[in-house]
């Protein structure tokens, strides 16, 4: 139990180390915060909930029009990016990155981490 927490923390710390990544968060599909690596803490729980809603809404939208499941949700905003990927049936991963970050690199690492998180939470 405590070990799983450590392992999730390690996974999040690795993601945080990618250039331009400002925060990495693991949340449940239904919007509860699991663990986070993020300096500003106040908004965390809400961010987890909002991200789960976005990914869920995206999944509902694309599957309803028979386009299959979305690979990820990327939000490009004024000062950065918010990226959400599913990590198995229970969880999802959220990344906050600044505008200078390399999107390609982040996505590769994020997909790997999502697979790992899925295993950790089995």
């Amino acid at each position: 139990m405590a070990d799983t927490i450590d392992m999730v923390d390690k996974l999040l710390a690795d993601l945080k180390n990618i250039g331009g990544v400002e925060a990495s968060i693991a949340a449940s599909r239904d919007g509860l915060l699991i663990r986070a690596n993020m300096p500003k803490e106040k908004f965390l729980a809400s961010l987890a909930a909002m991200s789960a809603t976005m990914l869920g809404a995206a999944e509902t939208a694309t599957t309803q029009v028979e386009k299959g499941l979305p690979t990820r949700v990327i939000v490009e905003s004024e000062y950065g990016r918010l990226i959400i990927v599913g990590a198995g049936p229970k969880a999802l991963l959220i990344i906050l990155a600044n505008s200078n970050s390399s999107l390609g690199l982040i996505l590769i690492e994020l997909d790997k981490s999502a697979k790992k998180l899925k295993e950790l939470l089995k």
Binding site: D30, G31, A49, T53, G56, A57
Partner: peptide, 21 residues
């Protein structure tokens, strides 16, 4: 922590999504 759902029927998928646990 409090989760408030939408009310209209067209948002039912989101309501289902948010209500776990």
């Amino acid at each position: 922590d409090i989760f408030g759902t939408p009310g209209q029927e067209r948002f039912d998928p989101i309501i289902k999504l948010l209500s776990g646990e």
